[in-house]
Simulated scan of single mutants.
Amino acid sequence: MEEEARSFLGRFAEEFPAALKEGAPLPVSPLSRRVTLEELHGESLELGRRLLAARGAPAGLSALLCQAALSQLLQNDLSPFHCAREPGPNQEEEQEVVLLESEGVQRVFLNQLIEVTLAWSQDFPKHPPPPSQFLHCSVHSIKNTRRKMEDKHLSQDQCAYYAVFDGHGGVDAATYAATHLHVALSKQESLQSDASSALKMAFKHTDDMFRGKAKRERLRSGTTGVVVLIQRQQLSVAWLGDSQALLVRGGQAVTLMDPHKPDREDEKQRVEDLGGCITFMGCWRVNGTYAVSRAIGDFDQKPYVSGDADCVTTQLLGDEDYVLLACDGFFDAVEPSEVPHLVREALRRPDAAGLRVAQQLVCHAKEAGSSDNITVMLVFLRPLKQLVGQNSTTGATQQ
């Protein structure tokens, strides 16, 4: 690992031997034109991750470099990047919100990142903090027959955090959730003692943050989401909407969660108790609009489309094979009980090598009739060689 890290640092130092010159194009584009101080954290980390990942940085090293650069950025005086207040209908509501001009402040961040990377290339830390946990992950996404790709996903192996977001009405909400939810989670004081509570609060906080951006920029999109967090011997799943996570243990599919769909009896009752309705228009919809009953965003239908996530925590016993995260574009075409067989067959292919398993599952869902965006992520909880030789029969059990 150290040799790989040193090799990357050397290559990066050759490409970026000095700070970016004022006025020169940034090597990676900022996610937004303006950001709040709170959004700066997530957007800077994502910008740094993209820059380093495109150049082959090991994930653990990338996370450490970005955190070090962000820490230095936040010690700077950022007032020169404050945006002038623009007159508008929400000016009074937002008078306390400080907005920063993204390109300028991200130039400072990227220069801090270059500075840290150059320093490490010259004097590599003797004992950099190791990743807390590394699990093999296979992920694949396709636009399929849809006009736009609105799915987003994120895997943070250094903290065993994995997420799939399925956007609708545009990609803004999904991109926002993929950028900020894990940051919001990391700031929850209860994260180590009560992962379930921390995940729910992180979802809620991200929804609240996106509300401000949606109001400022007149965005109308929403996103479902499913997050898996593994800490010690506990696997926690939090979700909004109909993206799902499925655990496979000893070759058997274990149902962890019940997706939020408008026709789910308790969801239907919740919406109706609020004065809304569930109607069938090609599929079941909340107030004749959205086909999910919980989501980040969709503020024109709040509180009927709730921003409150559900969460379950499962004890890991050591015989778990993998956990699969996917959007409804996959699960609408593939039954959970089919997953163990499909994965086992994909692993047995001579060209699979573990990395292409998700791709094989995505192709199967498309061939089975899915026309939606499809994203599949598999997080393997045991060595792949053990799974290839597994001969258990497929089936589904309810936890």
Rank of each mutant, 00 (worst) to 15 (best):
M1Q: 12
M1C: 10
E3C: 08
E3M: 09
E4A: 14
F8E: 12
R11N: 12
F12I: 09
P17F: 00
E22V: 06
E22M: 04
E22F: 01
A24F: 07
P30L: 03
R33F: 11
E39A: 11
L40M: 10
L40F: 06
H41D: 12
G42T: 02
L47T: 13
G48Q: 08
A53Y: 06
P58R: 05
P58S: 02
G60R: 14
Q67V: 07
A69S: 07
D77M: 05
P87Q: 05
G88N: 08
G88E: 07
E92G: 01
E94H: 09
E96K: 12
S102A: 15
E103F: 00
V108I: 14
F109E: 04
Q122E: 10
Q122N: 10
D123S: 15
C137F: 08
K143W: 02
K143I: 13
H153A: 05
Q156E: 08
Q158W: 10
Y162T: 07
A163F: 09
D172F: 13
Q188E: 15
S193D: 07
S193Y: 01
S196A: 14
S197Q: 15
F210V: 07
R211W: 14
R211V: 00
E217D: 14
S221A: 08
V227L: 11
G241M: 00
D242N: 10
D242C: 01
R249D: 03
R249W: 09
T255C: 08
P262M: 07
K268F: 08
Q269V: 15
M281A: 10
M281C: 11
G282H: 04
C283P: 00
C283Q: 15
C283E: 13
A291F: 00
V292I: 08
P303E: 00
P303C: 00
Y304H: 13
V305G: 02
E320N: 08
Y322N: 03
V323M: 12
V323P: 07
G329C: 06
V343K: 07
R344N: 06
E345A: 08
L347W: 04
L347G: 05
R349V: 01
D351C: 07
A352F: 03
V357E: 06
A358W: 01
A358H: 01
K366E: 11
S370H: 05
N373D: 11
L384C: 14
K385Y: 14
K385C: 11
Q386M: 13
G389V: 11
T394N: 15
Q399W: 06
